[in-house]
Design a protein around this nucleic acid. Structure first.
Lengths: 242, 242
DNA sequence: TATGATACCGTATCTAATACGCTTACCGTC
DNA sequence: GACGGTAAGCGTATTAGATACGGTATCATA
């Protein structure tokens, strides 16, 4: 950031309100989250969630959209507010309240890593191997994960995390990774196809060392129609509590 | 508020962050929300949600607890963050971000009306008859209601809204009022008793012009134990979308 | 051609959700 | 003190969905 940028930014930020983003992705059959290692003095060299102060001319949501755009060059990403964290001592040096958002991105489509400014490093972390993060960012991440599970239970958010074309096994892996549960593939496929929001394509996997699976795509229109008519979409075993 | 209070408050508040509370209650078989008519200059004579700026020494949640305490004289009320509202123009005169909370109270137990300061009036409003509120408070209320429904779907929050002793019909009325749905009382009673978190008391209704119903109480301990073992509690018809 | 792996199909069984008939108890009124 | 209105409370038949799991199909590679 050069001097002029710096001055402009400082003239406009609201110094006690920030936005932090929990960015989820799905890679190698595992749910991941994007962490950055800061290069600026504040939180220097600590792994943390991407975040910034908000500007006077933008809402928190607009700030989150901006941060995601700056990181990935992509707009219209799935975005949802997680919660606001306001403990008096969450930042030692001053009083800062942060509004946390979660985003779902297709890792294949948005190669986030190269675009990151203000960070000396950035990495997709497996959710089972999250390091100690700056400030209360571990707590924020956990809250976001819980929220994601709740959402996923009744909405087919696979849309946002999977590539355009995917196999039923990919989708099952996503559910299994998120909920840490083993599902019977025969029953899973029955349940999910019954919903009717998937379209089977005339394509198959290639270069797999076993029978190749059909590829599917999400039919968002059909899903929206189903929602209106009142269908819920619980793919988890009865009595499963998240 | 006298001059000294005013100075103290102004010395300590964070002037761009407030807390607003959506306080739900249950009365005459209907879900209600507490609204106040402000007596101070700001929002004078407009119905609105109870709310205040937060102080430098407290978190948003502590501020919400304080507001509820000032209004009712009661602590340990069910409290949950709804969302944070940060649109640039949500308050015309200055930039204020508000963190909204919802609270569930037992109206019989906490007579809120008499205790309210800073309000020329306060009233429990039927959710079907909410007037136009100050600022974006209608939006906040609606967001809170949606959140309440989602919560209720998998937790027996009736605890918080009903008196100690209640009939199964009371509980059914609560569900019917919240979800605007008619339930078959025979099936409702079967489902809810099967869960096992209710204790039948050796008491009955009196002075009703029909067969008097048994009274029940919630067994919180049993509920907590059930949650641990993974039981979910969906009393609504399959496919019902909120 | 055999083998290992996973996709994919089908069914039998068990459990839960739903619809609904019927009896019981309390109150007021004639 | 019988009667009617009303809601509590009990039981059951039917339907729908969840689960468990046996079996076949198809791919890559040895």
């Amino acid at each position: 950031m050069n001097t002029i940028d710096w001055k402009m930014a400082n003239a406009q930020i609201i110094p006690n309100i920030s936005v932090d983003c929990v960015i989820f992705g799905f890679q190698e059959a595992k749910l991941k989250v994007l962490l950055i290692k800061r290069s600026n003095a504040f939180m220097k060299s600590q792994w943390s969630l991407p975040g910034q102060f908000i500007f006077t001319y933008e809402s928190a949501e607009e700030a989150a959209i901006r941060i995601l755009y700056e990181m990935s060059g992509v707009k219209d990403i799935y975005l949802d507010q997680i919660s606001t964290f306001s403990d008096v001592n969450r930042v030692k040096t001053k009083r800062i309240v942060t509004i946390a958002y979660m985003a779902l991105v297709n890792i294949e489509k948005h190669r986030l890593k190269p675009f990151i400014k203000e960070a000396e490093d950035a990495e997709w972390y497996d959710l089972n191997r999250i390091p100690g993060l700056a400030l209360d960012h571990n707590e924020i991440l956990n809250t976001g994960l819980t929220k994601l599970k709740r959402r996923f239970r009744f909405e087919p958010l696979g849309f946002e995390l999977l590539p355009e074309k995917f196999s039923l096994r990919d989708l099952q892996n996503l559910y299994e990774s998120l909920f840490k549960i083993q599902l019977d593939n025969r029953n899973f496929r029955k349940k999910i196809l019954k919903i009717g929001h998937l379209t089977q394509l005339n394509e198959k996997q290639t270069n797999v060392s076993h029978r190749s699976a059909s590829l599917y795509s999400f039919n968002k229109e059909k899903y929206n129609q189903l929602r209106k008519n009142g269908v819920n979409i619980d793919l988890l075993p009865q009595g499963y509590i998240y």
